[in-house]
């Protein structure tokens, strides 16, 4: 069932000569885990903003086409109405902070307060989310005294606290240490299993390869690839999009040239796919010997 849709979406930022998105049509089903990738300035963040209604409601640029959530046009709803269905995590965590709450605990509670969630429920929810992101010890500190990575985890926590049905994340792992980045994807996978729809702009292709169901690749405002991770992330087009294949794909490519990758097996994008391919090679090779 289609939950989120863009229909011939084109958008030009004010004062810009070339569009940030050009004729983009996407249909996303409820419960999908979709990764959006591409070089910088390819349109990833703009797409995130369009989903959340930040574009066109908070920017004056020129927009053509439509964005629909559950069949309703974003143009007919305010940003705060859209926020009841869709949570947006920004890339730069400082931009996400309310600036009017003085502790990490209060910052996470902010969205819940605005929705009038009962106090007991709110306290419980804040504590759960802080624990999820390992921020309990920071609860009484100022959001602005946290390290870059801690702030990014806080930005995620503030959005997850209000429990939106659709979660859109703009490169949420930029400042996270490797284990922290992996943890975010693990949390997103659990949320997907609970029925949430996940859309994540991300450049760490090894993580996308492991966790996403579907990858959209953008190049200069256009959607150029749309498919399962193994298909998109091993595409020969990737270098033209200024994206680098994962090490797993690179290693398998060289093995393939040496005749050490199973015949007719697609190249891998993830660790698991590579290990499977190699064990298949070993089995068929042993059999032939």
């Amino acid at each position: 069932m289609i939950q989120l849709e863009t229909d011939h979406l084109t958008y030009l930022y004010p004062g810009s000569e070339s569009p940030a998105l050009h004729e983009v049509s996407i249909k996303i089903n409820r419960g999908e885990f979709v990764a959006v990738t591409g070089a910088n300035n390819s349109g990833k963040s703009t797409l995130c903003y369009a989903f959340a209604g930040v574009i066109p409601h908070l920017y004056n640029g020129h927009m053509k086409g439509r964005v629909l959530i559950d069949g309703q046009d974003n143009k007919d709803r305010t940003v705060s109405e859209i926020a009841r269905h869709l949570g947006l995590v920004l890339q730069i965590p400082g931009s996400q902070m309310s600036g009017v709450r003085y502790t990490v605990f209060e910052e996470v509670a902010f969205g819940l307060e605005n929705r009038g969630v009962p106090r007991e429920q709110m306290l419980e929810r804040v504590q759960t989310v802080l624990a999820l992101f390992g921020l309990e010890e920071q609860a009484t500190r100022s959001p602005f005294h946290l390290s870059g990575g801690q702030q990014q985890r806080l930005a995620l926590a503030t959005v997850l606290a209000v429990d939106p049905a659709i979660i859109v994340l703009d490169e949420p792992t930029t400042f996270l240490d490797p284990q922290g980045a992996k943890l975010v994807f693990e949390i997103l996978r659990k949320l997907q299993q609970q029925g949430k729809t996940i859309i994540i702009a991300e450049q760490r292709l090894d993580l996308i390869a492991t966790y996403a169901d579907r990858v959209l690749a953008f190049d200069r405002a256009k959607l150029v690839l749309d498919g399962i991770p193994r298909e998109v992330l091993t595409s020969a087009m990737l270098p033209d999009l200024k994206l680098k294949h994962t090490r797993y794909t690179q290693v398998a490519q060289v093995l393939q040239q040496k005749g050490l990758w199973p015949d007719k097996l697609t190249l891998p994008a993830s660790l698991a796919e590579t290990v499977d391919g190699l064990s298949l090679r070993r089995k068929t090779h042993d059999y032939l010997c």
Partner: peptide, 16 residues
Amino acid sequence: ESGLLHPQTMQLSKAC
């Protein structure tokens, strides 16, 4: 302890 993960090449070598 340091929040790190091995480079992809080492992860692959370990998994194999």
